[in-house]
């Protein structure tokens, strides 16, 4: 089966920033992404959890995006404008995809 190289970008960011980040991605022409809830974790700013309603402000979400390697810079530039000052992690890994025409 034919596989194509792609980049997998994972952005973990504060829940209140979700709309701003997806708006920035949409603006950069990145229209394919998946938003995942994140259970909880720990980082430089301490522990956090998504349990309970009042934790929403301190909760995090993750946005996963699989794109063609030549579009990576545009995505990172758009994302950087939003995530630069905020708590979070951005990682880029190599991956392979089936049905490359979909990316």
């Amino acid at each position: 089966m034919e596989m194509k190289d792609a980049k997998r970008v994972e952005i973990t960011i504060e829940a209140p920033m979700e709309t701003r980040l997806t708006d920035a991605l949409d603006g950069a022409g990145v229209t394919g992404y998946t938003i995942l809830p994140v259970m909880g974790g720990s980082g430089r700013s301490g522990r956090w959890s998504r349990e309970g309603q009042v934790s929403r402000a301190g909760g995090m979400i993750q946005i996963i995006c699989i794109i063609r390697p030549d579009r990576l810079d545009a995505l990172l530039e758009a994302a950087f404008g939003v995530v630069e000052r905020h708590i979070g992690v951005v990682t880029v890994t190599d991956c392979s995809v089936l049905r490359a025409e979909r990316f």
């Binding site: 209140p16 701003r20 402000a57």
Partner: peptide
Amino acid sequence: SYIAVPAAMRVALPEANPS
């Protein structure tokens, strides 16, 4: 406040310590 203002502060003043 513990819902509306913390969320606004995370957006507008991210350098402030939420803890």
